[in-house]
Write a protein that binds this DNA or RNA. Structure first.
Length: 525
DNA sequence: ATTAGGG
DNA sequence: CCCTAAT
């Protein structure tokens, strides 16, 4: 086979400092110490073992412990530190230091494997290793979130920050400008970037009882520099939106194959931007496109194409397609409207399964809502004109007089107590809620509503909050406690509960065990 | 205006 | 699902 030509654009192998066994081991120790994790690896193989590609075919749990995992995964993640794209003026932006470290590593490894030579390993701590990636020892996944990757010195700081978060919510914020790194554990409410741009609770840690999830998540994300002239996306791709409006967090992905590594587009463009390398402009050029085991999920996002490992089982765990309602894109995206007459995005169409709940839901609402408004109508006259749309606001809406007759409470339950309204959540609603939490994180119910899932539109933020609380309670119940399901329609699918468990494990305050059976005689809805 | 939490 | 306190 022809030797890889990565030397055309990578530093000469001889120029890369060679690390001794001890140096590399020491670096890994430091890494492990800093991140309070067990050492990534201790032993270097005398020669490249079986191809790392084979290694990645193994479950993540079995791949841990090898430094080749480190290399493969980082290269496969396809995220670069910074963005070396062209500026408006056609000036080639500088490529951040270490931008190609993943490729360098993989290239070195592939090279040595093909040449049947001992691996060439750059020294830890050299420029090739600018500490801009992190590995989760649990899932083997690494996630890199570009933050304010402004190129060409347009940004005053002229730096290329990069925030990396792994599945265990370690984060690492690199500031090449200052040559500093900050790291630690992500905690809810912690905003490594800027307070006003809250970092969404990132990929939830693996639930102890669940196997590694291939798709960690897909989250909306607003860059602190969104819309600023310094935003590379603004200058080169879109007019108003940042490349970093959303990120796709991949789990275990296959490493680049050598053929993909040799793709002309790759060799020529040198991956000049995050977008090009991820296939936004030319999907066929995406290195991920033809990687075995990867499937293309969803439409292109401003960040690039979404890829994810092909699920083992044919479960329909599609990725949420839109993190924002108005992603501009060169390709046709389904029309999407922000306001009340919600159009159906593909995802929503998927959610809105025919029959069951779809039928019941509007009926309940049409029965309940007008009644409520009619009640209020006699008390509030002018407020109706101004109140406008807000479908359900609790605060703005004039409230029923406490003692007023319950015209809409049709049935009394024998006692004199008012029967409370109760619209059970449909499975579709529940799934939409879980999707929202997966995107926005818990506690962001107003944001979740803004996502625009039509099925949820009639539920207030408080409703979402209450439902999520109940979902957590149900999810944390012992599996054996699946109460007699007389009502199959309302039963929350185990798959959803599993997702709830995964998400809830990432929150600071897990559901209070003592209140776990808070159902007070009535079922969780 | 939103969110957390008790009821 | 309702209500209130607290931001």
């Amino acid at each position: 086979m022809a030797a890889l030509e990565w030397t055309n654009w990578l530093p000469e192998p001889s120029s890369a400092p060679q690390a001794t066994r001890e140096e590399l081991s020491g670096g890994l120790d430091a890494f492990a110490e800093e991140f309070k994790t067990t050492a990534v690896c201790k032993e270097l193989p005398a020669s490249a073992p079986g191809s790392s590609t084979e290694g990645n075919a193994l479950p993540a749990s079995q791949r841990m412990g090898s430094e080749y995992d480190l290399f493969d995964i980082t290269s496969a993640m396809d995220w670069y530190e910074g963005d070396g794209g062209l500026l408006d003026g056609g000036v080639q932006a500088r490529v951040p230091e270490g931008a190609f470290q993943q490729d360098l590593l993989h290239g070195l490894e592939t090279f040595s494997r093909e040449q049947q030579q001992p691996p060439v390993v750059p020294a830890w701590g050299s420029q090739a290793f600018s500490n801009s990636f992190e590995i989760s020892r649990q899932s083997g996944a690494s996630t890199m979130i570009p933050t304010d990757s402004t190129v060409g010195g347009a940004h005053p700081a002229g730096c290329d920050h990069s925030l990396l978060i792994d599945a265990e919510q370690h984060y690492r914020l690199a500031d090449p400008q200052e040559g500093t790194h900050r790291g630690g554990m992500l905690r809810p409410g912690m905003h490594p970037i800027k307070p006003q741009h809250a970092l969404p609770p990132c990929c939830a840690p693996q639930h102890p009882t669940t196997p590694p999830q291939p798709i960690m998540g897909h989250r909306a994300w607003e860059s602190p520099f969104k819309g600023s002239p310094q935003d590379s996306a603004d200058s080169s791709l879109f007019s108003t939106h940042s490349s970093y409006d959303s990120i796709t967090i991949l789990g275990d992905v296959q490493p680049f194959s050598a053929p993909a590594f040799n793709r002309p587009s790759y060799m020529e463009s040198r991956y000049d931007s995050l977008d090009s390398c991820s296939g936004l402009d030319h999907p066929e050029d995406s290195l991920l496109a033809d990687m075995p085991g990867l499937c293309h999920q969803g439409p292109p996002t401003p960040m690039g194409m979404c890829y994810a490992p092909i699920p083992q089982t044919p479960r329909v765990r599609t990725m949420p397609m839109f993190s924002r309602s108005d992603i501009p894109c060169s390709r046709e995206l389904p029309p999407f409207q922000e306001s009340v007459p919600m159009e159906m995005s593909p995802r929503q169409a998927l959610l809105a399964k025919p029959d069951h709940s779809i039928h019941r839901q509007p009926q309940r609402l049409s029965k309940r809502k007008p009644a409520k408004y009619n009640d209020d109508e006699s008390y509030t006259t002018e407020s109706q004109t101004r109140s406008g749309v807000s479908s359900r606001g609790r605060s703005t809406k004039p409230r029923r007089y406490p003692g007023s007759a319950d015209s809409d409470d049709d049935v009394s339950n024998g006692t004199n107590k008012r029967r409370k309204h109760h619209n059970p959540w449909s499975i579709e609603e529940t799934e939409a809620l879980v999707l929202g939490v997966e995107q926005c994180g818990g506690g962001k119910w107003a944001d979740i509503k803004k996502l625009g899932y039509g099925v949820i539109a009639q539920r207030s933020a408080v409703d979402l909050k209450d439902k999520w609380r109940n979902l957590m309670r149900v999810a944390m119940l012992p599996h054996t406690a699946t109460r007699a399901k007389t009502d199959k329609r309302r039963e929350v699918p185990g798959e959803l509960l599993e997702r709830v468990r995964i998400l809830s494990s990432g929150f600071a305050k897990p559901p209070d065990i003592s209140r776990m059976s808070h159902h007070r005689g009535r079922r969780f809805s």
